[in-house]
């Protein structure tokens, strides 16, 4: 297989690779942003242990 011919795309390299490049960048970017959100949430969630009082409230709400 002739790779340099493949990458030239018959003279349409800019258009073809541009299309797939922008697709890849945007979709990967969306996934990365969601993962970043997950990390932020985990960081915020970690230092708050559930107090016994809030547990009590929770169980009372279940009864009502």
């Amino acid at each position: 297989m002739d790779w340099s011919k493949f990458f030239k795309m018959g003279g349409y390299a800019l258009y073809v690779w541009g299309s797939y490049g922008v697709t890849f960048v945007l979709l990967a970017g969306e996934v990365l942003m969601l993962l970043k959100r997950k990390r932020n949430l985990a960081k915020r969630a970690a230092p708050q242990p559930i107090s016994s009082e809030s547990r009590l409230n929770t169980s009372l709400q279940g009864v009502q």
């Binding site: 795309m9 018959g10 003279g11 349409y12 258009y15 073809v16 299309s19 797939y20 697709t23």
Partner: peptide, 13 residues
Amino acid sequence: GESYRILFIHVPA
């Protein structure tokens, strides 16, 4: 020519 290969992602998008 090769430019039509954009179709594979353009149409689904």
